[in-house]
Write a protein that binds this DNA or RNA. Structure first.
Lengths: 342, 342
DNA sequence: ATGAAAGCGCTAACAT
DNA sequence: ATGTTAGCGCTTTCAT
């Protein structure tokens, strides 16, 4: 090995110009097969790897995608939502030869500083924002001209491209299921109503009741804000209304609801049926000690990660096309808490 | 705004050469304060951001750190180990102005392909490998000359720099605790013995017994391999030996042990005391339905992430120094499964 | 303390 | 189908 390996050197060894080597590497057409093989052979034997920085500088593409996890979403790092999302995102990046960069904001100062960095020209080819919120420095990103995709419909930015699950339909399915099991006084613990997920899950609940001509009782609609403590309290406070079933807008809250019901001496599903939303760890068999196992609406989180990358790459390829709105279906997972399982 | 913002343009606007602007940006000494202020003002008003690719090409540094999660470790993405590690790593990267890139291997093909990419010159300033295993393409990385740090002591590469917790001492503490509670027939479900964590936790168990002059009974040492199913079976198979306590080498296995004990009609901690290792979700209060809450050895996972980055940056700065061996202490978390809590 | 100028290694437009 | 060449935007000697 003599010195650093560059395109020039490879060309020299293969008896061609550096431009030809570049073409071979980038799979250009119009290369004689024989030459291509010769060049590839030299590359293989030398172990040559192109210099990414030089490449980016010349081509104005970096092959880097950013995944941004805003500060407000941090609490969510306590369940497996992000790990699963990350798996999907990572896999799709691998498959499309992009490298994933990760930005997790811990403080507001970080958010400020990193937002600038993220928008830097010639640094990221595209950005995924996992959970947008108004109050950050991130909204600038949406106007920066850089390809951006948001996970979770951002209510305040109707122009933004996003990927989300069909929260309304999921909630509708959950509540319809409870109705089909004979329940009539169905309550709901709602999520944050300033987020699309919270709003739409509530709407799905309302739609289902309406569809089956059941009365809508405001006393049965209580706020949980996606927080466990609030859900626990809300459940206890609402119990005097004698619900025979509860649709809880997230599994994490549903756990607290189960706890509250247990503390109130009620049996699930005998006294009150419960359906959650998300199908995160808590609900599935990885933790076998939850009694009773939670019937829930499964989000295809991993798939969402994959689609996010694919959609973002499409945006990068066609920057002028109108905003993308990708909405994935959910799935009802029947376990014991609804009383349907035998 | 006229055209693209470059060093040249900033220099023009500030009435200096581009070299001076570069010096200001990179905090070189020997810049007149007045000039520095003038340049900084122009940068601020124009919103100029240096082009990272150009920077990297000229300086041979990218500001990119890689975190590699090998394929074999994938199963571990079912608990919160990696999310917590990621938080620490990410935070430390933010603080030191490095950008984190994430590589999760899903298939062997991916591992092959990405390993080459990761080693590429001028791409990553340093690499963290979270869980090394022999059979991958990753061992090449250790010989590539690139700064590499491994999380978890790699048994097969004594020369590698690593960060790990003190597994032996942690296990020793766990078992000593059980002994101090009066237990004498203490069993252990071991982890994978081809990993340092598995070996050392087993060793800590042995050391504690020896220290207190308790007999070592091979029938009480059973293999769980860090797998829940194996742990479940191992527990049931070993019960005829009448242990009065069990030290389980991971919380995830400990859950299966609790399940097995429950299925065998035994009470914890009354009939058998249990202590786990890791202090992941399963053990803490985020999931309030586990009965009984698990006494365990807490790993400072997040802190490990932070230290990993700091150590790696130190390796980057002093490449010639001898390999780093960073070992963090663990902590006994007493809950109900050991019988010590009132 | 500042400027001039030589690359860093690659891509892509142009030429042949 | 391949070679020549002009940058890409920055850092970093080397002058002054």
């Amino acid at each position: 090995m003599s010195g650093k390996l560059t395109l020039e050197k490879i060309g020299e060894l293969a008896g061609v110009s550096r431009a030809t080597v570049s073409r071979v590497i980038n799979n250009h057409p119009n290369i004689r097969e024989e030459v291509r093989q010769r060049v590839l052979a030299v590359i293989a034997t030398t172990g040559y790897q192109p210099n990414q920085a030089a490449r980016s500088l010349a081509s104005n593409r970096t092959g880097l995608l950013g995944l941004v996890v805003p500060r407000v979403m941090q609490t969510l790092f306590t369940d497996l939502y992000y790990p699963r999302l990350l798996e999907g995102v990572s896999q799709a990046c691998n498959e499309s030869n992009y490298t994933l960069t990760l930005f997790i904001f811990h403080t507001e100062a970080e958010e400020q500083q990193l937002a600038a960095q993220i928008m830097r020209q010639g640094f990221l080819d595209g950005v995924i924002i996992a959970g947008l919120h108004l109050d950050g420095s991130l909204n600038q990103l949406l106007h920066s001209g850089k390809p951006v995709l948001v996970i979770g419909e951002p209510l305040d930015y109707p122009q933004a491209s996003f990927v989300d699950v069909d929260n309304r339909a999921g909630a509708y399915t959950a509540v319809s299921h409870l109705i089909s099991l004979g329940h009539r006084r169905i309550a709901t613990i709602t999520g944050r109503l300033d987020m699309a997920a919270g709003q739409q899950r509530r709407q799905g609940y309302l739609d289902a009741l309406q569809e089956y001509n059941l009365p809508i009782d405001e006393a049965l609609i209580v706020a949980g804000d996606f927080e466990q403590e609030k859900a626990y309290r809300a459940t206890l406070d609402m119990l005097p209304q004698n619900p025979d079933a509860i649709f809880v807008a997230s599994d994490s809250m549903a756990l607290s609801t189960l706890q509250a019901l247990a503390d109130a001496g009620l049996q699930v599903p005998e006294d009150v049926a419960v359906v959650g939303f998300d199908d995160l760890t808590l609900a599935d068999t990885a933790v076998p000690f939850i009694l009773p196992p939670l019937t829930t609406i499964r989000q295809p989180i991993r798939r969402m990660g994959v689609l996010t990358v694919e959609t973002l790459l499409d945006i990068i390829k066609h920057p002028q096309a109108p905003p993308r709105r990708v909405i994935l279906p959910t799935e009802l997972i029947v376990r014991q808490s609804c009383g349907a399982a035998q």
